[in-house]
């Protein structure tokens, strides 16, 4: 019975999402040790998949599987780093603004709104153009500082609603300090939402990196799924029919995005009470509280309290 609402329920969606996501993460961590050097060009060019090269080779003779493994690492690093930066910024601009209210809120919200209305990709392009050498980390940083506004808006509205919750006011009455209220009373209740925002930011950053790479503004000297697609495009892989070159990175980006989205949907059911009620009504027995058809608990022991006679 001691179910913790913070954790998503186990559902097919969640399991599938976790399997996909963890599979790709494990691939990114382990596979680079098992494959050949992704920059080793001693192989024959444009070999189709075979026993020697499971995913064939590129025009320059690179092993596609090796590239894919190192690219996974690169893409995930960009995704995680950018998402981490974005989530910290959205915490500051979202939760702090929402809780503080007043002038602090006005100013922080104004910054958020400005970031929100500036189209993302052009801004990233402009920043990227100014940087002559772009490391993986720099790209992640650029994506991070441009990609937080959306979740800041969501977090702010959530924090504003939590701020006026009775239990927050109750801790004020108890004499709790603001910082502690934020960290101990409010933040834990935002964890599912934060997790969802974080996963979304990861997907967003990986796609953003791919986009930047495709227009030639990606990281120099690193391999990511994005740079792989760019190379394949530049090497005329499509017209050469070398599907093994451009399909795997594209597919992985799509599958990874789908996996994280599935996890997100499950988290959503926790965050969004309406979805939760549906999940409960269909999957498991749960009284639906006072809302319309009042369900009876399983052992409907009606409250028998002391009544003065």
């Amino acid at each position: 019975m001691a179910e913790n609402r913070i954790l998503p329920r186990r559902s097919a969606k969640l399991v599938a999402g976790l399997v996909i996501t963890l599979g790709i993460v494990v691939f990114a961590v382990v596979a680079p040790f098992l494959v050949q050097d992704p920059r080793f060009s001693g192989n024959d060019a444009l070999l189709p998949p075979s026993a020697d090269h499971l995913l064939g080779t590129t025009k320059l003779g690179y092993d596609v599987l090796a590239q894919l493994a190192h690219g996974a690492r690169g893409s995930l690093v960009v995704g995680l780093a950018a998402a981490a930066i974005a989530i910290v910024l959205s915490l500051i601009f979202g939760i702090f603004a929402g809780y503080a209210g007043g002038w602090t809120d006005e100013i922080l919200t104004m910054v958020t709104n400005i970031m929100l209305v500036i189209p993302g990709l052009p801004l990233v392009m402009v920043i990227a153009v100014y940087m002559q050498s772009r490391s993986l980390w720099l790209v992640a940083f650029i994506l991070g500082i441009t990609g937080w506004a959306g979740s800041a808006v969501v977090l702010r509205s959530q924090a504003r609603s939590l701020r006026s919750r009775d239990y927050v006011e109750a801790s004020q009455v108890a004499g709790e300090r603001t910082v502690r209220i934020l960290l101990v009373e409010i933040l834990p209740n935002l964890l599912p939402l934060l997790a969802a925002q974080f996963l979304f930011a990861v997907v967003f950053a990986i796609l953003g990196e791919a986009g930047l790479s495709f227009i030639g503004l990606g990281p120099n000297g690193s391999i990511t799924w994005g740079t792989m697609i760019t190379d394949a495009y530049g090497g005329n892989a499509m017209s050469a029919g070398a599907w093994w070159w451009f399909v795997p990175p594209g597919l992985l980006i799509a599958v990874f995005g789908a996996g994280l989205s599935l996890v997100n949907f499950s988290i959503d059911e926790v965050v969004n009470p309406k979805l939760r009620v549906v999940a409960e009504a269909t999957g498991r027995r749960r009284a639906t509280e006072a809302s319309a058809p009042a369900a009876v608990p399983a052992s409907p022991a009606e409250p028998k309290t002391e009544v003065t006679v």
């Binding site: 009775d166 239990y167 109750a170 009455v173 108890a174 004499g175 009373e185 209740n189």
Partner: peptide, 20 residues
Amino acid sequence: YRHDVQMVFQDPFASLNPFH
């Protein structure tokens, strides 16, 4: 003051933090 004066809120479903 809060040491001496405390409050009981109307809605016990809202006045306790679900996380704790």
